[in-house]
Design a protein around this nucleic acid. Structure first.
Lengths: 248, 248
DNA sequence: CGACGTGTTGAAGGAGCTCAATCTAAGTGG
DNA sequence: CCACTTAGATTGAGCTCCTTCAACACGTCG
């Protein structure tokens, strides 16, 4: 997936530049971070709940997700990550991981010593601010998801999620806003939305039947963005993208 | 409420010291931050969704909460804040607020120019790290709430919340772990847990009837911490308190 | 081919919602 | 001090959205 001629940490520079205008030396400093690369297949753990990791982890290619397992065995997926995301910046500072991070697909990851991340953050305020900004955007998405799960019904939750996928995959250069490949099973979609797999299926079928979407397996085509966004109560503000892609 | 002889920013120093050992000069620098104090009565807005605030806001006394209103009019409460919390550190960096912050009770707040907060964070890495840490713990609580709302049933959600209140109010010196005053109405509890006020009421009554709690109006006594924590699937790890108060 | 993962569909039950009434405590004004 | 109001807690009854359990379809891969 990733351009093999490219520096493994390049996606990180791109991501941070999205938030903050980095000077050449800032970018160089990021690229000079020490790291070790690793390739993991789907479902492998990147961080385990309760771990005390000594490394932060950059997702170089593929998809990953964060999750929590609750007492009755239920699982809640808390966030999704695409290439360029630091999937556990929080673990650079917090001692013990309060949740797990898992590979959703085959992934390439770069492990960076947490000390190096912290030193860089404070040696180069712009980089530090960009990283901080990144964790804040992360929090913003968390909040939107909480509202989604807590106060919206099933069709709205899923429509919202489909819109978010479109925007985020496109922003990461992994598809079109209105036409992309969902990177997860319906069971995983259920764990994102706080529903059951069965109900996710029925609800997605209903969206199809209403002419809002068109799915064949994992391939999603959004037939009517305006109506889907409306149904999903979706406004992209919470993603804090600078380039407000004005759709419709 | 707040000790009037005390510096208004003292609660912030206390809070940050909880995360990181601050040098005397660090503490002094925090106390030297410019600010303007303000007193607000319950329900007043501290930050409005969509605002582009020029100030960060420290909660000096009282309670506040963050919320989001969704398309159908429903409200989701995203977080609770007690004295010493920076209720919108995220707005120091993010341009537009993606949610509102409201006073839950009468509050005293100190507005600090965002520029001053950022400058301090990078001039004094220890302070910056403590602030970053703070936003990360905030995120950790967000995640636990998401799991709570997404994957736990009503009795579990409320038992969990009652446990969290006990720990957090105690940590802030505002009550005992097993005996405190809930700072919110049942309607607000509903907006925290993603339930309806009626169902919150019935569920709380059931907890009482089972001998787990004992409520008279807002006063809560936890009769059996072990059983309530068990029922609520509660483990305090996600609060990332250093002083792991080992109960039972 | 058989096994398995994933998607799809049916039928029945239940957790939680809606609507609405009642009750209580705490103001508030006269 | 009492009538009046109001916010919040409590309770009842009926309904619905979502769950649970189960079966079946389809494609992939050993």
């Amino acid at each position: 997936m990733s351009n093999s001629s490219e520096h493994p940490l390049a996606p990180l520079v791109r991501k941070l530049s999205q938030w903050m205008d980095l000077a050449e030396e800032d970018a160089d400093a990021v690229l000079s971070l020490p790291f070790t690369s690793k390739s993991l297949s789907a479902q492998n753990y990147i961080v385990r709940d309760g771990d005390t990791p000594e490394h932060s982890c950059l997702l170089v290619s593929g998809f990953a997700y964060r999750q929590k397992v609750v007492g009755n065995g239920g699982r809640q997926i808390l966030a999704l990550h695409v290439k360029g995301d630091m999937v556990d910046l929080q673990n650079s500072l917090l001692r013990t991981a309060d949740h797990s991070v898992q590979a959703l697909t085959k992934v390439e990851v770069a492990f960076i010593p947490r000390r190096a991340v912290l030193d860089l953050a404070f040696a180069r305020p712009k980089v530090g601010m960009a990283m901080w900004y990144d964790t804040l955007v992360d929090g913003s998405v968390h909040r939107e998801w909480t509202a989604n799960i807590g106060r919206r019904d099933a069709p709205t939750r899923l429509a919202h999620l489909l819109c978010e996928f479109g925007i985020r995959l496109h922003a990461a250069g992994l598809g079109e806003v209105c036409c992309y490949e969902i990177p997860m099973t319906q069971e995983q979609l259920a764990d994102v939305t706080g529903l059951t797999p069965v109900h996710v299926n029925r609800t997605l079928m209903a969206l199809d039947r209403q002419g809002l979407t068109d799915r064949t397996k994992r391939a999603v085509t959004i037939r009517d963005w305006k109506r889907l966004a409306d149904m999903g109560d979706f406004h992209s503000d919470y993603l804090h993208l600078h380039d407000d892609m004005m759709l419709d």
